[in-house]
Design a protein around this nucleic acid. Structure first.
Lengths: 217, 217
DNA sequence: CTAAAGTTGTGAAATATTGCACAGCGTGAT
DNA sequence: ATCACGCTGTGCAATATTTCACAACTTTAG
């Protein structure tokens, strides 16, 4: 219905997610309005950038009173979230996978990891961190059954590409990849790789070039 | 000694780290040369970008034979690594922290997590995933003693800022932050935040805008 | 020896992203 | 009622990053 503005940049989407989380915190603390310069600190940007980001969600600011927090949360959520809670799959229940299960288990109201998959038959059928673990063979079927279109990939590097291929063929729409391997996809599947090793090596590198000051994701 | 080229972008540093990892794999498989277009696939960029990145390390390519892998690894390492292996500290030995200990424990020859810290006294003194766990009180002293200047922060959001402050005051030079909180620092401390929740929400968002195809870190 | 094919290094264009700066407006003080 | 102040929305400039495109060079084939 709403005339869809062309394209919101990935960076902006990330920041909106961070703003929302912070806004929820503020709301819990009893605040009801924020200024762009307050929000700018949590992403180390400028106030102008925040205002620009917020314009994307259909701006609600009010001169000299700032933004109304609850309204802002609502608008950001309208943009970021689907109408219904998203079901997520976790692939790979090793150390990292289990940690992620724990990490993402808090009270999220827009998504939920509903199933875990692992190639180790010993894990199949068990409940791990509150989620049922299935065998990899069941993946294609379960993705459809549970209406999952986003997956978290936490398998070893060696199997990342093969598993990703399976996911894509099973109709997944987005993958958050923790394996230190690039995933190629001709199709329209969105892949976000969090390369922890590169991130650490980058930190190590810049620990010696202590010039700049830096930001986030 | 070498006239230091002004500034290498963070993006480039990340990609160099990824190239190197891939190059090591190739070397193990017996290959001894690569072309820029082969490397470009592992970061989903263009060949030109790879060549540009490699120029930063002092380019060694050879027309129509590509780059010699072992030489490239050596040059990238010369740029990325310090002369000596870097000691890293992990702060926060919860689920995520332990997973990170495991994740980073493989055979790394340029860095090593040598100590873990946690505010829970019950963990202090124990060996977790092969690393000794210290109490937070010991942090300032141990950082100096072990010559640690990079830390991985895996504490809950609530304590992230306070702990980061302690780290900075103790002279840390870079922080890889997993807590969903922005860390502010006036000083020249490098902070890299890996916001897993934002990353997942971004993936969820783009799972519905299945237009583009995307890359990495 | 010559030509064809394929690759590197890189200037220059194209994009993407960020920051500046100011008009316009609401608020509170006088 | 008026004015000073502070904040938003945004055009525009400044950066940062990526891609294009092509000259120069190597190898291989004929």
């Amino acid at each position: 219905m709403s005339k869809n503005q062309k394209k919101i940049s990935e960076k902006t989407i990330e920041r909106l997610s961070a703003y929302r989380r912070y806004l929820k915190d503020l709301l819990k603390k009893g605040k009801d309005r924020v200024y762009s310069h307050e929000l700018s600190q949590i992403v180390s940007g400028t106030a102008a950038q925040v205002r620009r980001d917020l314009m994307e969600v259909g701006c609600n600011g009010c001169s000299s009173k700032g933004y109304e927090i609850s309204l802002l949360i609502e608008e950001i959520s309208k943009l970021l979230d689907c109408s219904d809670k998203q079901n997520i799959a976790l692939i790979g229940v090793g150390n990292l996978g289990r940690a992620l299960l724990g990490y993402f288990s808090g009270s999220r109201d827009n998504f939920d990891i509903v199933a875990a998959f692992d190639s180790d038959p010993g894990k199949s059928g068990r409940i791990i961190c509150g989620r049922r673990c299935y065998d990899m063979e069941q993946l294609p079927a379960m993705l459809g059954e549970l209406k999952i279109n986003t997956a978290i990939l936490a398998v070893p590097a060696e199997s990342a590409e093969k598993v990703a291929q399976t996911l894509i063929e099973s109709g997944i729409k987005a993958i958050l990849n923790f394996a230190p391997r690039h995933i190629t996809t001709g199709s329209g599947v969105f892949i976000e790789t969090l390369d922890m090793t590169s991130a650490l090596e980058k930190a190590i590198y810049f620990s010696r070039k202590n010039t700049q000051q830096r930001k986030s994701t």
